[in-house]
Amino acid sequence: MTSLIRLELVRALRNRKFLFFSVVYPAVLYMIIAGGAAEDSKVDGTGLTLPTYFMVSMASFGALTAVLMGNSERIAKEREHGWVRQLRLTSLPGRGYVLAKISSAAVVSLPSIVIVFVIAAVLKGVRLGAAQWLELTGAIWAGSLVFAALGVAIGYLATGDAVRPITMITYFVLSLLGGLWMPTTTFPSWLQDIARWLPTHAYTGVGQAIELGRTPHAGDFAILVVYLLAFTGGAAWLYRKDTRAA
Rank of each mutant, 00 (worst) to 15 (best):
Ala130Arg: 02
Ala130Tyr: 00
Ala130His: 00
Ala130Glu: 03
Ala131Lys: 13
Gln132Trp: 06
Trp133Ala: 05
Trp133Gly: 02
Trp133His: 06
Trp133Glu: 07
Trp133Thr: 06
Leu134Pro: 00
Leu134Arg: 05
Glu135Gln: 14
Leu136Asp: 08
Leu136Trp: 09
Leu136Lys: 09
Leu136Ala: 10
Leu136Tyr: 11
Thr137Gly: 04
Thr137Asp: 00
Thr137Asn: 02
Gly138Trp: 04
Gly138Val: 01
Gly138Gln: 06
Gly138Ile: 02
Gly138Thr: 01
Ala139Pro: 01
Ala139Gln: 02
Ile140Ser: 01
Trp141Pro: 00
Trp141Lys: 01
Ala142Thr: 12
Ala142Glu: 09
Gly143Trp: 09
Gly143Phe: 08
Ser144Arg: 03
Val146Gln: 03
Ala149Val: 07
Ala149Pro: 01
Leu150Val: 09
Gly151Thr: 13
Val152Ile: 13
Val152His: 00
Val152Trp: 00
Val152Asn: 01
Ala153Asn: 02
Ile154Trp: 05
Gly155Pro: 11
Tyr156Ile: 11
Leu157Trp: 14
Leu157Pro: 03
Leu157Gln: 10
Leu157Gly: 10
Ala158His: 10
Ala158Thr: 12
Ala158Lys: 11
Ala158Pro: 13
Thr159Trp: 10
Gly160Ser: 13
Asp161Lys: 14
Ala162Trp: 09
Ala162Ser: 15
Ala162Gly: 15
Ala162Ile: 05
Val163Pro: 07
Ile166Tyr: 06
Ile169Pro: 01
Tyr171Ser: 07
Tyr171Trp: 14
Tyr171Pro: 05
Phe172Arg: 10
Val173Ala: 15
Ser175His: 03
Ser175Met: 07
Ser175Tyr: 03
Leu177Val: 11
Leu177Ser: 02
Leu177Pro: 02
Leu177Phe: 11
Gly178His: 08
Gly178Gln: 08
Gly178Asn: 06
Gly178Cys: 08
Gly178Asp: 09
Leu180Glu: 10
Leu180Gln: 13
Met182Ile: 13
Met182His: 12
Met182Ala: 14
Met182Lys: 12
Pro183Met: 05
Thr184Asp: 14
Thr184Asn: 14
Thr185Asp: 15
Thr186Tyr: 15
Thr186Gly: 10
Thr186Gln: 15
Phe187Lys: 04
Phe187Leu: 13
Pro188Ser: 00
Pro188Glu: 00
Pro188Gln: 00
Pro188Lys: 00
Ser189Asn: 08
Ser189Leu: 06
Trp190His: 09
Trp190Thr: 09
Trp190Tyr: 14
Leu191His: 11
Leu191Ser: 11
Gln192Ser: 04
Asp193Leu: 05
Asp193Ile: 00
Ala195Asp: 11
Arg196Cys: 03
Arg196Glu: 15
Trp197Ile: 10
Leu198Asn: 02
Leu198Ser: 02
Pro199Asn: 15
Pro199Ala: 15
Thr200Met: 08
Thr200His: 07
His201Val: 01
His201Cys: 02
His201Thr: 11
Ala202Arg: 03
Tyr203His: 10
Tyr203Trp: 15
Thr204Ser: 13
Thr204Gln: 12
Thr204Trp: 04
Gly205Trp: 10
Gly205Asn: 06
Gly205Ser: 07
Gly205Lys: 01
Val206Ala: 03
Val206Cys: 05
Gly207Tyr: 13
Gly207Cys: 11
